[in-house]
């Protein structure tokens, strides 16, 4: 009864699988990583200690601050289809915190500020974001949105 695969892993696996199937290349997508100088960073690697009284950034995140990184995840639907600012989530957002008062962002979101505006990618589609990692609390002056981790000067493509 106890499953060893984490749910997020399973969902991600399912998404990779679906994408692989769509490309007619079942099973090989997991191995593909872009040829960038960027270091790959996983959602599981963002935080070291997680507690009710707060999280601490992982050593990897601290080491990569200010450096190029690449992350895979899902694009939460932004307020506008064409946007230079969006939220990257580990799993597809089933709720839209921008749209409803009864919803809330997950803990481990990453804010992405694009080098130039790009069009929204389907919520069911995995994307890869590359850019420079910014670490630490920052409040967006336009929206008041508080973020802890950002990938700036970024671009993204379907993973």
């Amino acid at each position: 009864m106890i499953m060893t695969v984490s749910r997020r892993g399973a969902l991600r696996g399912a998404a990779y699988g679906a994408l692989g199937a769509a490309l007619g290349l079942p099973g090989i997508v997991l191995a593909v990583r872009p040829a960038l100088a960027a270091s790959a960073l996983d959602f599981d690697e963002l935080y070291g200690k997680i507690s009710v009284l707060g999280l601490t950034f992982s050593d990897k995140v601290k080491a990569l601050a200010g450096k190029p990184v690449a992350m895979r995840g899902y694009m939460a639907p932004p307020l506008k289809a064409e946007a230079d600012f969006f939220v990257l989530t580990e799993i597809p957002m089933s709720i839209c915190p921008f749209c409803s008062s009864d919803s809330d962002w997950p803990d481990n979101i990453v804010v992405v500020r694009l080098a130039k505006a790009q069009t929204f990618e389907q919520a069911n589609a995995l994307i890869e974001v590359a850019g420079t990692l910014e670490v630490g609390s920052w409040t967006d002056p336009a929206t008041g949105f508080v973020s802890l981790l950002r990938i700036v000067d970024a671009r993204f493509h379907a993973a």
């Binding site: 499953m3 749910r7 969902l11 639907p77 089933s94 709720i95 839209c96 929204f120 069911n124």
Partner: peptide
């Protein structure tokens, strides 16, 4: 849903909720 709470739908670029394909297979 043995792998975690069900998330039936996700939002697309038109702000419409569509079936979450994680459960398709």
């Amino acid at each position: 849903k043995m792998n975690g709470p069900f998330e039936p739908a996700v939002q697309n670029e038109k702000k419409e909720y569509v079936a979450n394909e994680a459960y398709k297979d």
